[in-house]
Structures are given as C-alpha cells and as structure tokens.
Simulated scan of single mutants.
Amino acid sequence: MSCGARKMIKFSHKYLENDYLLREEIINNPKASLFAKLIDSTLLKQNATEQQIENLCLEAIKCHFRAVCIPPFYVEKAFSKLQNTDVRLATVVGFPLGYNTLETKVSEVVNLVSLHVDEIDFVQNVSLVKNNNFKQLEKEFKSIVEASKGSLVKVILETALLTDEEIYKCAMLAALSGIHVIKTSTGFASRGASINDIEIIKKALTQYQNETGIFVGIKASGGIRNYHDALSLVKSGATRLGTSGGFEIVNEKVNHTSY
C-alpha cells in the first residue's frame, strides 16, 4: 500500500497503526520473527502463580512481544516488571463469562485504568446477543469505551457461542460504538479462534471502514499453537494474536497448552 493510501486511513486508536503496518509486512514477507510485535503473550489460567507471571513478563521483554495479557490480580506486579520497556500491559474485564452487570464491568475498568493498564480486553454479555437486545449491548460497549479513558479497548465476542450472523452484527456494533479491536475468544469456551471467525469479523470491519474510513483491529485468540496457525489467521485479517505460545510461534515450534 502506498504512503498516500495509508494516510487516508484513520485508526480507531493510535496504537493500531503499528499493528496494521506489521500485518502488511508479514503478508509480503512471512518471517516467524516478525510475529513478535503482533503477539499478546497470555496467561489467564485460574491457578497462575506469581512466578509464572514474572516469567511471562521477562519472556515478553526478551522477545519484544506487543503485550502481556494477565489476570487483574497481577496487574500491579506486571506493571513493575514492564515499566520502561516496549511491552504493553493488558488485562481482562468480565472474564471469562461476560455476564457481570454493566456497573460491575465499568467499575472494573475504572479500577484497572487507575493501575496503569494500557489495554482492556472485556467479554461481551453474550446473553444480550442471544436475547437480541443489541440496544443494551451498545450501551455496554459505549460505557466501557468511555470508562477506559483512552486505553485501547478490545471486546471478546466468544465466537464459539455465536452464529455467523451474530458474529457479524457484534463486530459491526462494536466498531460503531468506538471499540478499537474485535477479539474472538476467551480460551475458556469449546474452541478458540477459527479462520471463519476472522473472515466474518473482517467482512464487517471492511464494510465499516468503507463507510467511515476508520480501521478497527482484529485479535485472534485461543488455540494458536504454532507459526502456521498464526500465519493463516494473520492472512485472514488478524492484527493481533492472543496466545500462550508466543515463544514457539516466533521460533517455529509447537505449543501444547490449552490457550
């Protein structure tokens, strides 16, 4: 893409331009080492220990991953490890089921922003989708964006629980509501990201970009265990990868964990 064409793109958040450009580079020159800056290195297991979180942060610093995504309980510890590095700090809200009250979710976001997180990955209320209550879902989306105070916001759709039509509608509504990245999965459902999920989200966001000129990112997460999986998802449209296998991906090995 020419510089002139790129200048016409408006990014929903300033940090998405790097994701966009790196994806373009990977498509043109698919080297495993390039994936590091698209990876949110993730540890969200219930039994995660302090030492594991510390190791995750140290590995992310060494590999220059885009971010670490960790439980809220460990945010303060991770912040102390990541401060003055190029690794961003992400955490989760309403995780993993998403059916917290809106007030609870907003309170979580406000608290986490005060703890210096860079990125918020929140689980949408799938019950609202199944009840066809997209008006209330829009309120949830907009309220969380407002509470984030400029932090990058990703919505986790939990695509395993949705029809193709619901994935499309949720992705479009999220973009219209000011959310910066559409994410597929928590890693706690029956499956993680699929190529089909990414293609549907990409279709919705392409329509949104055609209508508004605004680029919204896509995060594939759950079940990404090797370089070939990662490349396929990026080629389909993903601009971020949520995985516990970041080290294996950039070294073209295989990760055998469940996320």
Results as ranks from 00 to 15, higher is better:
Leu137Pro: 02
Ser80Asp: 14
Leu241Cys: 03
Leu43Pro: 05
Asp121Tyr: 02
His64Asp: 15
His180Asn: 15
Glu108Gly: 06
Leu58Asp: 10
Ser12Asp: 01
Arg66Cys: 14
Ala60Tyr: 15
Thr49Asn: 13
Ile53Leu: 03
Val126Gly: 02
Leu233Pro: 01
Lys31Asp: 07
Ala174Met: 00
Ser185Asp: 14
Ile179Phe: 09
Glu108Ser: 05
Ala174Ile: 01
Phe79Gln: 09
Glu119Ser: 09
Val68His: 10
Ala230Lys: 05
Leu152Arg: 12
Asn251Ile: 00
Glu252Met: 14
Leu89Ile: 00
Pro71Ala: 05
Lys77Pro: 05
Lys169Ile: 04
Arg6Glu: 12
Glu166Lys: 07
Ala193Tyr: 03
Ser244Trp: 08
Asn133Ser: 11
Phe35Tyr: 08
Phe215Pro: 00
Ile39Met: 01
Val254Tyr: 13
Ala174Ser: 01
Gln83Arg: 15
Ser148Val: 04
Glu17Asn: 09
Leu115Asn: 11
Thr49Tyr: 12
Ser114Val: 02
Pro71Cys: 00
Ala204Glu: 02
Gly98Met: 06
Thr163Lys: 15
Ala238Lys: 05
Pro96Ile: 02
Gly246Asp: 06
Asn226Arg: 10
Val153Phe: 04
Thr206Ala: 04
Ile214His: 06
Thr257Cys: 07
Asp164Leu: 04
His256Met: 10
Asn251Pro: 04
Lys45Glu: 11
Gly246Ile: 00
Asn55Cys: 07
Ser107Trp: 11
Ile156Lys: 08
Val117Ser: 09
Thr212Val: 01
Met172Leu: 09
Asn84Cys: 07
Phe11Met: 14
Val145Arg: 09
Pro30Thr: 00
Leu152Cys: 13
Glu199Thr: 06
Val92Gln: 01
Val254Ile: 12
Leu58Trp: 10
Asp118Glu: 08
Arg66Ser: 15
Val145Asn: 13
Ser236Asn: 09
Ala193Ile: 01
His13Gly: 03
Lys219Met: 11
Asp164Tyr: 06
Leu152His: 13
Cys57Tyr: 13
